[in-house]
């Protein structure tokens, strides 16, 4: 689950269900692709066979990685039936759940780890989502988060007909504070804005310009305005690992 486009006069266009973005990132639909996921999973060093939930699993590339490269038992959560159908093909051994990050349909303490990549800002309620992740994580479990953040607290993007992670970005300080309030202890925090720039650059090389890329999903005027707004956007990308403290149940 990554970015949602919504036109006022048409059915919602779900950007993360489009093939164009996934093709640029090896199917993973986010800055850094699976390379960043590997780095963070290696750091966590989950025991073989541990059950790890991907919140916003999309087409299931991380689920496949969890099973085939790390010997873990993957579970996936996504609100999109279309994405879950792809995930079922990509990672046949994964347990899949349709639902929202704000109401995870799993029991307390069910998972040794949670991965949620480029999703949190889209959930609509960061506090509720983190509380749910905390609930379904077992004591001592690890949470891996990557997402967009905003360098300027007051930034209000002019993104016509576009609802996406780009327009819901929050300051990094607010995100880490929410992680702590949910009962997690921060273990690792890295600024990976280089990966966001890399993806934007790859879009230019692959589609000719950012405006042409947005033109795949938006009308010409909206694509131009979106490109202009994002050209000056004070956005970054973070990766963090947090632990559920053992005394929390």
């Amino acid at each position: 689950m990554n970015a949602l486009c919504r036109r006022l006069d048409a059915p919602p266009i779900t950007l993360y269900e489009q093939d164009e973005l996934g093709a640029l990132t090896g199917g993973a639909l986010r800055p850094g692709g699976l390379g960043l996921t590997r780095e963070l999973l290696r750091f966590c060093d989950f025991a073989p066979g541990a059950v790890v939930l991907d919140v916003g699993c999309g087409p299931g590339h991380t689920l496949e990685l969890l099973a085939t490269e790390f010997g873990l038992r993957p579970a996936g959560l996504d609100p999109s039936a279309a994405m879950l159908a792809k995930a079922a093909q990509q990672a046949p051994t994964a347990a899949l759940h349709q639902g929202l990050a704000t109401a995870i349909p799993c029991r307390d303490g069910a998972f040794a780890g949670i991965v949620s990549e480029c999703v949190l800002s889209l959930t609509g309620d960061i506090e509720a989502s983190l509380a749910e992740m905390h609930r379904v994580l077992r004591p001592g479990g690890r949470l891996i988060l990557t997402d967009i953040y905003c360098r300027q607290p007051q930034w209000q993007p002019d993104l016509p007909r576009l609802q996406s992670c780009l327009s819901h970005a929050q300051p990094l300080e607010a995100i880490t504070a929410a992680v702590n309030r949910a009962g997690f202890a921060l273990v690792l925090l890295r600024d990976r804005s280089d990966l966001l720039k890399q993806l934007a650059g790859q879009i230019i090389f692959s589609f000719g310009s950012l405006e042409r890329f947005w033109g795949l999903f938006l009308d010409a005027d909206a694509a131009r305005r979106t490109s202009c707004a994002l050209a000056a956007a004070p956005l970054g990308y973070y990766a963090l690992i947090a632990a559920k403290e053992p005394h929390h149940g």
Partner: peptide
Amino acid sequence: MSTFSFAE
């Protein structure tokens, strides 16, 4: 997937 190429 690419819709743009410098190869000509």
